[in-house]
């Protein structure tokens, strides 16, 4: 029997979390919030209602950290069953991180302060699915600057044609994810900071069949 997980952002007021608990059925509850919030009386009240809830402390002012924590929770929970996110509690940064994670992982997300609002996320539509296999393979493989020839060799070993890899590099360049340059007469390809920030969405994705 699949276990339904609700991932909720929490702050210092449990009243921002309770509407989601009433509205969205779940078997497991995961709370993502600041360390101070987990020490606050509001969280203790929440624990008294849900003693089995799992907590994930984050820096609630660091959007990257919040987003990565929520995405990790999503990846783990998806192995067990369907996942929903409540983006209501905590800081504005935490809400935006949950919102962004929901979009990038294709997870249903709600904002429940006032009338419940389902965010316009397409369930199952993940960021990673928008990239063809060759581009996804480059995203996973290209962790630092490397010569074009080395990159081509690595990907042809995975089964991709040279022409496909070249087209993928150009496409990723147009998306701002890779940068090409010449260094001592050799063509070099390097990942942009934006590529590094999305790589976790592609972990474990298989190469060419």
């Amino acid at each position: 029997m699949p276990a339904r997980t609700l991932i909720a952002t929490v702050g210092f007021d449990e009243r921002h979390v309770l509407p989601a608990l009433r509205l969205l059925p779940y078997d497991r509850l995961v709370a993502v919030g600041g360390r101070d919030a987990f020490r606050a009386p509001a969280f203790r009240r929440l624990l008294s209602i849900e003693p089995d809830l799992q907590r994930f402390p984050v820096d609630p002012f660091d959007l990257q950290e919040c987003m990565e924590a929520i995405e990790r929770c999503v990846h783990v929970a998806q192995r067990e069953g369907p996942v929903r996110i409540s983006a209501t509690g905590g800081t504005k940064i935490l809400t935006m991180a949950a919102f962004l994670a929901a979009f990038q992982e294709g997870v249903e997300a709600w904002y429940c302060d006032g009338p419940p609002l389902r965010l316009p996320v397409l369930r199952g539509a993940r960021l990673a699915d928008a990239f063809p296999a060759a581009e996804a393979a480059i995203i996973v493989h290209l962790r630092k600057a490397m010569s074009l020839e080395s990159l081509l060799a690595a990907l042809t070993e995975l089964g991709f044609a040279r022409r496909t890899v070249m087209a993928a590099i150009l496409s990723l360049g147009r998306k701002g994810l890779v940068q090409s340059s010449k260094r001592t007469g050799r063509d070099v390809v390097r990942p942009s900071p934006e590529l590094a920030s999305i790589r976790s969405h592609f972990a474990g994705r298989p190469g060419k069949a």
Partner: peptide, 18 residues
């Protein structure tokens, strides 16, 4: 608190294309 500008890791994806 620090008023430091932080770029967000956004990527344009056409979600309707899925």
């Amino acid at each position: 608190e620090t008023y430091r500008e932080i770029p967000l890791p956004l990527l344009r994806i056409s979600y309707g294309a899925t």
